[in-house]
Amino acid sequence: MKLTRRQFTIGTLIAAGTAGMPVFAKAQGKKTIAVLFDGLYSPFWVAGLDALKQDLTKRGYEMVQAISDKDDNRQFEQVRAMLARKVDGIIIVQTDSNAVIPAIKAANDAKVPMVHFNRPPAKTDAFSVAVVADNRKITNATVEHMVKVAREQGGKYKAAILIGNLGDPNAIGRRDGFFDVVDKNKDIIDVVARIPTEWNADVAFAGLTNAFQANPDINFLFTSSDFLFPQIVQVMKTRNKFHQIGQKDHVIFGGFDGDATAYELLKDKYLDADGVQDLFKEAELAVNAIVDLQGGKTVERVLLDPGFAIHQANMAEVRDRMWGYSIYKQKNG
């Protein structure tokens, strides 16, 4: 049988369309939520993506994910692609709080609810919901415990803080939370190093090395994120500053996030306190917000995760709420 070119073309198009029908039909059956992250650069974000996936699956949603690799334009394109795919909601972690605004407007135009996970957008008329940790309050609690330890030990302290990317409101909250407390305790704490990290481990490593070279007597250290622990521990070991609680030359040490490394350091008595974002609660709040918005309910623009500080005194009681402890348990049985 001879086939003309036209017949061949029409046949191919029909075959392609028919093959697409099952996929299309499947897409109709289940509600779909797009989860768009800017990167999976630290255990916090990996665990966050996992927590969202579990929560969505439990509620019978299909999840589609995309990573923008810290590219604002790509993330905007991803949002539009998801809107074209007719998703029922979008949970997003944006790189830049200003550059995400066109994406929020696009979602508003398409009447698709958008929830920001752990990072709020800049002020805008466009509507979206942000689930954020109360960074300042959690940091207050963490640093207050560090100061309590310092007062109990007595003496004067030279402090250093590793600050995150100040384009990220979370980094600003943590920085301000740290200074709220140390400024009230200037009689014993003098902040000698403010180390910008841009949320970059290499930058943090270099900055902390320089800080210890300039101030070898730093004995009070706070990092705005736990994902910098490996670099910090490396620098402290090199400078002979990595000692357990109770040992001479122990640096009073605190962090923020609540990851598995933080739990190990707490357990091994190297870390005094850690601010914990309640990741599971944040995932639940984000999915609840999407469900409520879909159901036409009113949802506050900002949903706060109060979080908590874990330290040597309360570790046994609160560690089950620490997401890093869950990961630690999975790894170590």
């Binding site: 690799d69 810290k70 590219d71 604002d72 334009n73 790509r74 905007f76 790189t95 830049d96 200003n98 550059a99 605004i101 066109p102």
Partner: peptide, 17 residues
């Protein structure tokens, strides 16, 4: 075009393309 699209001037614009 990119800046207009994102309504924002950003120093990491286009870094990954």
């Amino acid at each position: 075009l990119y800046t207009g699209r994102l309504q924002t001037g950003t120093p990491i614009l286009g870094q990954t393309i």
